[in-house]
């Protein structure tokens, strides 16, 4: 098989993986605190539209003086904040008001999709048709790669020629891995997600941890949405652009067994499956078979975990229940 097709395929898989990876990492952080936030799709929509707006209005006012890094930087900051707002709303409802986690997550999905498409529509109206990043921003966003390294044959294309959000996502995954496994705060967070009463008994502020985890986690999900609108769609708002990728991220969390390192490979795998048929169409195999694989694999992982009664790759135990310390 042609090596170029293979490297190209890998390249596209990684590009497709990036928004998934952000969504997955955000949800891993959230679930590690004992909250299952099914609103990833909504938070990605919020990040996608608000991140895009930040960049769009900056470009609108800066005009020819647009500096690409500032446009992207603003998109990152506002994409994050938008997702974090979603996570914060979720925390207020589930942690403080003890609302059902599943239902709150779904409400957040409905809300976030509404926010995303509304803002996206308004932006398109404002731009008299459709939004689009300026040349300066595009240069920063698109294909930067790492100088010199990207010129290495094959490996250069496969590893060193991505836009900076790809590297950002991978750094984020490594950072999260380090945080959860090596730091005290990460350890405390895991305790909160496994057994809030134990954490409470040793003086960990359960409420604070859950708020912060869900909000920062939401922010990371928001970044995933921002990547879709700013990078993949080059600053153009496409109606319903997140298109279910938030839900794939939820599946990926299970598939990755709540581990950021596995999330990297899982995201590339799932991303790869989504572009696989473009590169290797198999005769007689319908496209949907490729699309089903991620979900089927996730179910398989889920069932396997439960049969083995595996403690390691199971969902944090407190997920789905809200903690209430009975009065003493």
């Amino acid at each position: 098989m042609d090596i170029d097709i293979l490297t190209n395929f890998f390249f596209m898989a990684v590009i497709a993986a990036t928004p998934l990876l952000f969504g997955t990492l955000g949800e891993i952080l959230t679930q590690k605190s004992g909250s299952i936030n099914l609103g990833v799709e909504g938070m990605m929509f919020m990040g996608a539209s608000i991140g895009l707006s930040a960049s769009y209005f900056y470009e609108f006012y800066a005009g020819d003086g647009t500096i690409g890094y500032i446009a992207l930087g603003l998109a990152v900051i506002f994409g994050f904040l938008a997702g974090a707002l979603g996570g914060f709303i979720y925390s207020v409802l589930t942690v403080t008001f003890r609302a059902n986690q599943n239902v709150t997550g779904l409400a957040l999905t409905i809300f976030g999709i509404g926010v995303g498409n509304l803002i996206g529509d308004l932006l398109s109206t404002h731009a008299h048709g459709f939004t689009s990043s300026t040349e300066a921003t595009r240069r920063v966003v698109a294909n930067v790669g790492i100088p010199f390294l990207r010129d290495i044959p094959i490996l250069g294309r496969m590893l060193f020629s991505y836009n900076m959000m790809v590297y950002f996502a991978i750094i984020m995954a490594l950072l999260l891995m380090w945080f959860l496994n090596k730091t005290r705060v990460g350890l405390n967070l895991r305790a909160v997600g496994e057994s809030p009463s134990t954490a409470d008994a040793v003086g960990i502020n359960v409420t604070k941890y859950k708020y912060l985890a869900a909000s920062i986690g939401g922010g990371i999900c928001g970044l995933g949405g921002m990547v879709i609108s700013m990078v993949d769609n080059s600053g153009t708002w496409v109606f319903n652009c997140v298109a279910g990728r938030g839900w794939i991220a939820v599946a990926l969390v299970i598939f990755a067994a709540w581990k950021p390192s596995r999330a990297i490979f899982g995201a590339i795998l799932f991303g790869g499956l989504s572009v696989l048929r473009l590169y290797f169409p198999l005769d007689g195999v319908p496209a949907q078979v490729y699309d089903i694989v991620p979900y089927a694999a996730t179910i398989f992982a889920l069932v396997l975990t439960s049969i083995r009664k595996s403690k390691e790759s199971a969902q944090p135990k407190a997920c789905g229940t809200n903690y209430f310390r009975e009065e003493r």
């Binding site: 909504g42 709303i89 207020v92 409802l93 403080t96 008001f97 003890r98 609302a99 059902n100 239902v103 709150t104 409400a107 957040l108 409905i110 809300f111 976030g112 999709i113 509404g114 926010v115 995303g116 498409n117 509304l118 529509d121 308004l122 109206t125």
Partner: peptide, 24 residues
């Protein structure tokens, strides 16, 4: 009014948020 129909999602979401919170 020139308001996109996606506003329905926002208002529905707000309604759900408030109802969920009020259960408390």
């Amino acid at each position: 009014f020139g308001i996109p129909s996606s506003v329905a999602g926002i208002i529905t979401g707000l309604f759900l948020f408030f109802m969920l919170g009020s259960e408390f």
